[in-house]
Amino acid sequence: MSQSKPTTPSEVRQRAAVEDKRRRRKARAVPGRLRPKLLLCLYLLFVLLPIYWLMNMSFQSNTEILGGLTLWPDNFTLEHYTKIFTTETWYMGYVNSITYVAMNMVISILVALPAAYAFSRYHFIGDKHLFFWLLTNLMAPPAVFLLPYFQLYYTVGLFDTHIAVALAHCLFNIPLAIWILEGFMSSVPKEIDETAFIDGYSFPRFFVRIFIPMIRSGIGVTLFFLFMFSWVELLLASTLTSTNAQPIASVMTSTSTASGIDWGTLAAAGVLTIVPGILVVYFVRNHIAKGFALGRT
């Protein structure tokens, strides 16, 4: 826009009209810009309210919980958390869950990396069908596989071990990892591979030294997803374990006893299951936006 002063009256009027219009538009824009913020805040309130309520209850004693509705803890207490951290079945539940989730993440990413590379770089007989078959596993309801899994792991002597749950979760986590990684790998230009091979890199060396560092953020996001789906799954995890590898999810069912439900402990245990998730999402927060599109935008 030119900054020169207007010289004729008509030009002055025109300029004034333009300025006026702009001022009006700005005046309207303020509430217009506030409203999205307000809507977003409403949604966040909807998201956080149930979680707040859980936290609220975890800091109250059971008598206070059942005594009446209080919007915040009147007698702030940590008794439920103390109980969880001092009772072995409780804290071992968390240890067990984290153990099998970690095992599953390691196994899944190790076998998914080469497979995803193959899918992103090569055509081979049956590639499309293999990929589809993998996706159907992602969609298979765990309930379908419940019984045979129980039988299978019982027969091979893995029942009630962490590795059993880790292997079972591979059913949906490996396909998921391949799906996400394939998207990221496809966005790496093929010329990089070719140049490296011309420079005399062997395939394993190229893969570990050059390729993996290039898709680091993709691997981070994949690990986040692997964590997420293994951490939240409960049906398989609780069916394949009894006491030694019992996940926290099935320990929580023991809060309902003959004398009613121990609401405070249930709430505290629930709050503690959210914490690892927050930690993990905090680490990948900068990549997650890209990762959720699975490299397919």
């Binding site: 979680i51 951490w231 939240v232 799954e233 926290i248 929580m252 245990a269 998730g277 999402v281 997650i288």
Partner: peptide, 17 residues
């Protein structure tokens, strides 16, 4: 992070909440 939060809660805990 806040929006992602519900996705990271174990499914039975979602039920409990």
């Amino acid at each position: 992070i806040l929006v992602t939060l519900p996705l990271l809660i174990p499914w039975n805990v979602v039920g409990s909440i």
